[in-house]
Design a protein around this nucleic acid. Structure first.
Length: 627
RNA sequence: GCCGAUGUGGCUCAGUGGUAGAGCAAUUCACUCGUAAUGAAUAGGUCGUGAGUUCGACUCUCACCAUCGGCUCCA
């Protein structure tokens, strides 16, 4: 650290520390990516050191820094329970108090391997064996603990000021379910206790917005054990929102030149054999009929009478195209469908309304010539952007360019040349759009690369909201020719796309974003009329009928309760507007208006109330709502 | 599917090897009420399901189902 002057210590995000990495030391603060990574990386080494001190037989796997903290994977027969975590935390505190200096050193491959063998760390040996020829093999040592690690790290264990182990989970070695399941301990760390506490509080607050909790409490949906996992019952409130969203999306798509289809929910295996689903996606499908031969793996079995519920709409809509001979003059054809899909997800994967076995997607396929590919792709993205902006989710999304995995060719249809060519083409389009995206290998669909619009739920877990995919395979597989201007038969490109994604998932994310208080235009109940006493019930019913006639979603609270109680309940149930009616209002033909955001707005004429609400709805005004 | 946690009336939660309570909600009665909870009474649970251990299980064991978190997978 030759001659670097150490500034005065700072606290919080500006806390600085030196980090040791390849090539020397440098100073970073916690607000920098490098600073945070070093901080959490050293935290994970302290965790591993503590575990090794407590249970020396435990084998080490990997322990990186992640977005909000760090984890370390261990191979150990017993699970880590609550008491174990407490013991580990105590030992970590001790290691921090020991203020052990961290030291980096490099070994030639043979010696590195020998050292890890001597330390009886088979996972580390495997990691070394898989490092590229020319890689520098570095280790970090703190006290008696040495770990194979690329770094960077803090200068000393004493730099870690505040940390917390948050949970234990199973995780496959190297992320493959074919490998042994290891035991992963997650934690997080910060330069002071205040920041840690703030972070933990933020997580607690976020969980209060969990759609799975709020959506059930507010009666959007429910589930029943005897129906099954991933099969929610949408209650009237949830259904009203879905209906609102579906109408909005369908109307917008029709404006943009889409034609709607209604295709079957199931088909014979023959169809899926052509599309490739039978070979690339069968595990994800619900099959019907005699599947016993299939299960035995009998290659000569007759599976022509096996039906399957559709996991995707594509091959069905292709048959709409195939209904007549097509010319280049017909293209582009834009098919859309509000499509129910069925996927046999593994039992551990279902989550609220976010991962389901039956769901509804704003499906669509754009069938076009090579020249039309770019404008159609851009049009699809523009539509999705418009829709997501309208519901308020656009500000939360990131873009992912999902490519195939060249090392896993058997998962995909088509040749390497075709994949590389179409991916290059897609990259050009994305760059041309100036989209800020990150590339992801191995995330493509089996038939082509995708642009995924990603968002995060309250647990911080990323999910795909919308996807736009280029397919250069299925046109050919299905014989979807068109006659070009030169009289030649050609195969079209197909863009698979959604505009709002899966309606149930979008609803889930909306509930979380707005903590259950949806913007007026989407709210299942837009106003609740609250009579002061039952003397005003009849007038309330007449007004409700009037407002409902004007297109508003209105309910009346006719219970014999005090107005304070009715208001409290309407607030809790997230009614956007409360319309109080008593003697005064009946006499004047007015309503006393209360907004759940702004409180009492005073008395207004009934028509003025309707007009105000209708304007807020047509403008799709979004209130940013806290809990 | 794998690892771990959880499962008590509609909801939130107490509880103990000797066949269960509270608050909210519901129902009834009284009050006819002016911007976040009126009072009283009543009713409601084979303690997720099924086996097993036990004289006896909601409580112990096992299996299954569902919910939650993570892994894998994915819209």
């Amino acid at each position: 650290m030759g001659g670097t002057v150490r500034p005065a210590p700072q606290r919080g995000w500006n806390a600085w520390f030196f980090c040791i990495y390849e090539g020397g030391n440098d100073m970073f603060d916690f607000s920098s990516e490098e600073g945070r990574t070093s901080y959490r990386h050293t935290s994970s080494h302290i965790l591993a050191q503590a575990v090794k001190r407590l249970w020396p037989d435990t084998k080490l796997a990997i322990g990186p820094a992640i977005d909000d903290g760090f984890y370390y994977d261990f191979d150990r027969d017993e699970t880590f329970n609550k008491e174990d975590l407490e013991k580990i935390e105590d030992m970590m505190s001790k290691i921090i108090r020991e203020n052990l200096p961290v030291e980096r050193f490099v070994l030639p491959r043979v010696e590195a391997r020998k050292m890890m063998e001597q330390m009886n760390e088979p996972y580390k040996v495997e990691l070394i064996d898989d490092l590229p020829e020319d890689a520098e093999i570095s280790f970090y040592r703190q006290g008696e603990f040495t770990d194979l690690c690329a770094g960077p790290h803090l200068e000393s264990t004493g730099e870690v000021k505040a940390y917390k182990l948050t949970m234990v989970a199973g995780a496959y070695w190297r992320g493959s379910e074919k490998n042994k399941m290891l035991r992963r301990i997650y934690g997080t760390s910060f330069p002071d206790k205040g920041l840690l506490k703030e972070h933990l509080n933020r997580i607690e607050e976020a969980k209060k917005r969990d759609h799975n909790k709020i959506g059930r409490e507010l009666k959007y949906f429910t589930t029943a054990e005897c129906i099954g996992q991933g099969l929610p019952i949408m209650l009237p409130k949830g259904t009203r929102v879905l209906q609102t969203l579906i109408r909005f999306v369908e109307d917008e798509e029709i404006k943009r030149g889409y034609q709607y289809t209604r295709t079957p929910f199931l088909a014979k295996s023959d169809l899926y054999k052509i599309s490739g689903h039978w070979y690339h996606y069968r595990d994800g499908m619900f099959l019907m009929g005699d599947t016993s031969a299939l299960e035995r793996g009998d290659p000569d079995a007759d599976d022509s009478e096996i039906y399957a519920l559709r996991p995707m709409t594509c091959p069905f809509q292709y048959h709409a195209y195939l209904n007549e001979s097509r010319s280049y003059r017909d293209l582009p054809i834009r098919y859309a469908e509000t499509s129910t899909l069925f996927r046999n997800e593994s039992s551990g994967e279902m989550h609220g309304l976010i991962r389901l076995r039956q769901f509804t997607i704003s499906e669509g396929h754009l069938i076009c010539t090579p020249e039309q590919l770019e404008p159609e792709f851009k049009g699809a993205l523009d539509l999705a952007t418009y829709i997501l902006d309208s519901v308020g989710l656009l500000e939360d999304v990131t873009y992912r360019f999902s490519k195939w995995d060249i090392n896993n060719k058997e998962k995909y249809v088509g040749t390497a040349e075709e994949w590389e060519a179409v991916q290059d083409q897609m990259r050009r389009i994305l760059n041309d759009l100036g989209l800020n995206y990150k590339e992801a290998d191995g995330e493509a669909a089996f038939y082509g690369p995708k642009l995924d619009i990603q968002t995060k739920n309250v647990w911080g877990k990323e999910d795909t909201l919308v996807t736009i995919q280029i397919d250069f395979q299925q046109g050919k597989l299905f014989g979807m020719e068109y006659t070009d201007s030169d009289g030649q038969k050609k195969y079209p490109y197909i863009i698979h796309r959604t505009s709002i994604g899966c309606y149930e998932r979008t609803l889930a994310l909306l509930l979380e974003k707005y903590a259950g208080a949806l913007p007026l235009w989407m709210a299942p109940e837009q106003a609740r009329i609250l009579p002061i006493s039952d003397k005003h019930a009849d007038a309330a019913k007449v007004i409700a009928a009037d407002l409902i006639g004007k297109g508003l979603r209105v309910e009346v609270d006719l219970r014999e309760e005090k107005i304070g109680k009715k208001i409290r309940q309407a607030q809790i149930e997230k009614a956007p507007y409360m319309l109080v009616i008593g003697d005064k209002e009946v006499e004047d033909g007015t309503l006393s208006v209360r907004s759940r955001y702004e409180g009492d707005l005073g008395t207004m004429a009934i028509d003025a109330v309707a007009e105000m609400l209708l304007r807020e709805i047509s403008d799709k005004i979004i209130h940013h709502q806290t809990l």
